[in-house]
């Protein structure tokens, strides 16, 4: 006790001592109860922290959306029909296509050479070119027998089975 106690009279000290021997009523809660309440409070605080973070993010996202959607450029695609004069010259596609260069060697790849000739010069190029085998000068259809040549195989059959070598 401090020095002020020295100023108390003996009767006051006796009363002080008698009062001090009284025991305050005990608490009706336990330490375990307090610990449980503390855990609840701590968990609630953590939850509030995450709720605050989520709320701040939501507000930021909303603000960003509002700021972004202010003046916006809208692109409209229009189709406009215009009267244009007819072209003076109508050119046929492929008309002046340059002839395909003939690159195959003589005597090799007969079919390919013939095809190239047909593509570049037309069907007439086959006539009298000497490239068609002599046995096939008269084309026949499969199953059709040429007159006077019942036992002869059509030229293109031989041609196909020969691998294109006539």
């Amino acid at each position: 006790m401090s020095h002020e106690e020295e100023n108390l009279s003996p009767g006051e000290r006796e009363l002080e001592s008698a009062l001090g021997r009284l025991v305050p009523s005990a608490a009706r809660f336990t330490l375990q109860h307090l610990e449980a309440r503390t855990m609840v409070r701590i968990e609630r605080r953590r939850t509030r922290i995450w709720q605050s973070v989520a709320a701040i993010l939501a507000i930021a996202a909303g603000a960003a959306f509002l700021l972004r959607s202010g003046p916006r450029t809208v692109e409209v695609e229009k189709i406009v029909f215009r009267n244009t004069p007819q072209p003076l010259e109508i050119r046929t596609v492929g008309e002046d296509r340059p002839a395909r260069p003939f690159v195959l060697a003589e005597g090799e790849f007969g079919y390919l050479r013939m095809r190239d000739n047909v593509l570049s010069r037309g069907v007439e190029s086959m006539r009298g070119s000497g490239e068609m085998p002599a046995a096939t000068q008269t084309p026949t259809v499969v199953g059709e027998r040429a007159s006077g040549a019942e036992n002869r195989t059509p030229w293109y059959v031989d041609y196909l089975f020969s691998g294109g070598r006539s």
Binding site: R21, L22, V23, P24, S25, A26
Partner: peptide, 15 residues
Amino acid sequence: RTEFFESGADDLIDA
């Protein structure tokens, strides 16, 4: 009405 103090046999003052 609850008591401030718990009554004890050796109390010098009535609680």
